[in-house]
Design a protein around this nucleic acid. Structure first.
Lengths: 336, 336
DNA sequence: TTGTATGCGTTATCAT
DNA sequence: ATGATAACGCATACAA
């Protein structure tokens, strides 16, 4: 049933090294032989064993994307599909493919399972999955890896990240220039890097415009609709209300929208609302929401390129870089 | 730098077959030897080569999930993450892992690339990616595969699907029992299997309740917010308006909601709105939307089990089955 | 241009 | 309980 290179060699009356050379289209084989062998191969429905090739070439031709499926709420989850698409689009050019590696237990040693066992030739993971120790281990083994998300502390680590700080600046600047004066920031927890980076951008931009930073206008909490609703409601009942809200997530934005409408303020005339992370329904909210858009397909591409360059030993002049978000202005912040 | 089973054998003063047996925890090796060898292995930081093991065992320990990334709009994409989670959760139990295989060109022969080359031991794909010819080819090779989505025509094909027809029935029945009489169905194109199955359920349930089927109450078109909006607006301006809308997608639902509010009808008192495919923001719409919920993690699990049973040659009594959707009743259809 | 021999790093069979 | 040796299916250096 199973047909190997030997069967082809016999059937074609050549040696198996000749067959191998035909498979790899070696220039040292005559065209007539190639034709003959190929003929036999297709007659016998022969496809070389990928595993045997891997062993002989000492290369698995696949890379791993490490994820932690248990964290359902993770920022990257919603963009999983497009990130994978981006990664795949580049590794496919090298005939590599992509293995999804889920981390199961706390100390799931995917390093052993995939890296040292040579099951994959490189990995992509996000910065929450990698501490400095592991990064150094990988570097010692000179095992190719790329991090999604900024990594501090080691200038040899290849990473690509969305520029969340810039994003925070952009969205804040937009609101200021649109004419809003008292901008609230309804966000997540400080421990969340993405949140705190965005928050930093917000804070810096206020300063740049000499707008006083009001401690009370910043709400920390879970990224839920309820939290958005409660926060906005609370702020709107104060003496000096905010006139704009920056929401750390769409859920929060929904809650804020509800609260603002309930309090009978007009959006965007009286209150502006902007949110991070554009999503398909954002243009169809009432009013359509101004968002920051992240090109996560491109993020995946960038990560893929960074990794393949390491694998192929191409030098990469710039292996730590940010991807700029894009501001999509919609009705919800068109004050004028 | 690279340490193999031979190095361990020498260092431990045993033969490499002994080392191999220790690796595989063979009962024929004495505990003392095991301890000794394991000691040496960890000292040398030795991890067996996955590729060599694969070749020797003739098993790649991995399965493939075939997808077509170019179809960004495909129904299953939004559930990609949870489907993968479901699949991974079962294959991981067998120490298998999951390779993402993107189909690039029209006639990308993933059959050669992955199936015949033995790069993976089984595949999961959706029914739009597989015609009867290919299914038969796979069956001939007795290559394990599982289809996501119903496959007609061959009783040997393993598949699992969401019961969309039942879903259509459930949502319709709910509306009828909630007191709505004239139920419109705003959907996609008839060529879309998912849509037509749901539509069939809708139609059947009307009949079951002796409610006349009004041709005009069914709108076919793209699943966009615009289409939902226009369709609802049109229907609401008729003499005998519908008093409920079933929406084929969340985008459509958004459009319908807008149109209904604009026409100043009260939801759910005057008009009921229900939609397929529960999504995170559905509970936070205004009003919260009644949805049909599909457990896509479970769908992935089911597909994984169906596949692993084939690979492990466990007989599966029931290898074609539906997953029941769940109706989540929210404010938008609470007429009374 | 083609063939021979050997290696890739394991597992498995059969002795011992 | 352990070891020698032959697979596993291909690639490649070197010889012819």
């Amino acid at each position: 049933m199973k047909v190997t290179i030997n069967d082809i060699a016999k059937a074609a009356n050549v040696s198996k090294s000749t067959v191998s050379k035909v498979i790899n289209n070696s220039p040292t084989i005559s065209d007539t032989t190639k034709r003959k062998v190929r003929q036999v191969m297709s007659e016998h429905n022969y496809i070389p064993s990928s595993i045997a090739t891997q062993l002989a070439k000492q290369s698995s031709l696949s890379i791993g994307l490490i994820i932690d499926m248990s964290r359902r709420e993770h920022f990257l989850n919603q963009f999983f599909y497009s990130i994978i698409g981006g990664i795949e689009s580049v590794v496919a050019n090298f005939n590599y493919d992509l293995t999804i590696v889920n981390i199961h237990s706390q100390r799931d040693n995917f390093l052993d399972r995939f890296v040292l066992s040579k099951k994959v030739e490189g990995i992509i993971l996000d910065n929450t999955l990698l501490d400095t120790t592991m990064a150094n281990q990988l570097l010692e083994h000179s095992f190719p890896f790329t991090v999604i998300g900024k990594m501090d502390g080691n200038s040899d680590v290849h990473w690509v990240d969305i520029d969340n700080e810039l994003g925070g600046e952009m969205i804040t600047k937009h609101l200021i220039e649109a004419g809003y004066q008292r901008i609230a920031f309804i966000g997540g927890f400080n421990e969340d890097t993405i949140f705190s980076q965005r928050f930093t951008g917000y804070r810096d931009m206020l300063q740049q415009y000499d707008i006083p930073f009001v401690d009370n206008y910043v709400k920390n909490g879970s990224g839920t609709t309820e939290f958005g609703y409660e926060s906005a409601k609370e702020l709107l009942s104060e003496e000096v209300k905010p006139d704009a809200f920056i929401c750390a997530s769409n859920y929060i934005a929904h809650g804020v929208l509800e609260a603002v409408k309930e309090a009978n303020f007009a959006i965007p005339e009286q209150i502006g609302v902007a949110t991070f992370d554009n999503y398909p329904l954002a243009p169809y909210m009432n009013p359509p929401l101004t968002c920051l858009d992240n090109d996560t397909f491109f993020l995946g591409e960038a990560a893929g390129n960074l990794l393949m360059n390491q694998i192929k030993k191409h030098t990469d002049q710039n292996y730590q870089h940010f991807i700029e978000p894009k501001l999509i202005v919609r009705e919800s912040t068109r004050k004028v």
